[in-house]
Design a protein around this nucleic acid. Structure first.
Ligand code: ZN
Length: 330
DNA sequence: CGGATTTGACCTGCGC
DNA sequence: GCGCAGGTCAAATCCG
């Protein structure tokens, strides 16, 4: 209870803010074209890119205000670079909540681990469980202690994670899926706890965690992990707003190289939510409510360069069900 | 009564 | 090797 820890020990999410680097051109929002191509991630991660220069959040927020009538821009998250030592000097965090009445503003970043671990579920969860209770077979003698052995030491299921910063007062955002809360932990440097949710669908192992920014209670950080292989249980019906994130704004996601050795990022994404198209029930594509998901994959893995570029990650949308079931246990 | 939450225990990875 | 922090499980509880 007595947290003598330094609140600014290090930022678990590494909020980066740059208010002084004014460059007045946000490459993500030129127009319909893909300006991201001009940004070469081969050397620089997205966070570093943000941190380096070439854009500022003032301009970005201005762009927001112009196009999306949203509020301000929130910093992005880098899941992979969170292992920053105490070397960085800016803990100020660029989150500045201006108007509490502003709709929502969300920035997301994705982190794709290497390997081909895509979205396969199960087969990794039955490692330490099952033996705890041990009611059926008493032949096992090691029941005294809940010993667990990760038989296969590999395969850590490092799925890509997408972090969304959403400015919202409520914690339970309706994103169209049904979630079941399975855990809650206190965040180290934050007075607000972190909640762990899981998709209620059996075939879907998508997880998400929701936490609040420890400086601005208005900011909710939602981190999605995995993809849904099913359609939204409720949605595309009455509450079209729940079809997607209820926060019409922008989603800019990017990944960075988590491995300092290899300076090539795995994937780069950019998603964009249109502001006021939530009631497009007359459209011919109810699933694609109002989200524009764009994916720029700069993978140059020599091992397999054919199947990976076949299709990308369908971020908030349903993707091919066979996509996940391709990895079966022998 | 069934399903979602709550909440403490427990496991794992990692840094020191 | 130990401690901490993060993540997960599951029994208990709550609520419709
Ligand atoms: Zn799901």
């Amino acid at each position: 209870m007595s947290n003598e820890k330094n609140p600014s020990d290090y930022d678990p999410f590494y909020y980066n803010h740059l208010n002084e680097h004014n460059h007045s051109s946000f490459p993500f929002f030129s127009d319909n074209s893909t300006p991201l191509q001009g940004f070469d991630p081969s050397n620089t991660s997205f966070t570093d890119f943000l941190h380096s220069s070439s854009m500022d959040y003032n301009t970005l927020s201005r762009a927001f205000d112009l196009s999306c009538s949203s509020s301000e821009v929130i910093s992005s998250i880098d899941e992979n670079s969170k292992k920053k030592p105490a070397g960085l000097g800016d803990h100020s965090m660029g989150i500045s909540s201006g108007n509490p009445s502003t709709p929502n503003s969300s920035v997301s970043s994705s982190s794709n681990e290497a390997d081909q671990a895509i979205a396969e579920e199960d087969s990794a969860k039955n490692t330490y469980k099952k033996d705890k209770q041990l009611k059926g077979c008493e032949d096992e003698e090691e029941k005294t202690k809940k010993e667990n052995k990760p038989k296969k030491k590999e395969k850590k299921q490092k799925e890509p994670r997408f972090a969304f910063l959403t400015k919202s007062e409520i914690d339970h955002l309706e994103d169209g899926y049904r979630w079941r809360k399975y855990g809650q932990k206190a965040v180290k440097n934050s007075p607000y706890p972190r909640s762990y949710y899981r998709c209620t669908s059996q075939k879907c192992g998508v997880k998400k965690r929701v936490e609040r920014s420890f400086q601005d209670p208005s900011i909710v950080i939602t981190t999605y992990e995995g993809q849904h292989n099913h359609h939204s249980p409720a949605t595309l019906r009455g509450n079209a707003a729940a079809g997607m994130l209820s926060s019409p704004s922008l989603l800019a996601s990017a990944s960075s190289s988590f491995n300092p050795n290899s300076c090539l990022p795995q994937e780069l994404l950019l998603a964009h939510l249109l502001p006021t198209n939530i009631n497009n029930q007359g459209s011919h594509d109810p699933n694609n409510n109002s989200i524009f998901y764009q994916n720029l994959t700069h993978h140059q893995y020599p091992q397999h360069h054919g199947q990976q570029q076949f299709h990308d990650y369908g971020l908030l949308q349903d993707l091919l069900p066979s996509f996940t079931s391709k990895q079966e246990h022998p």
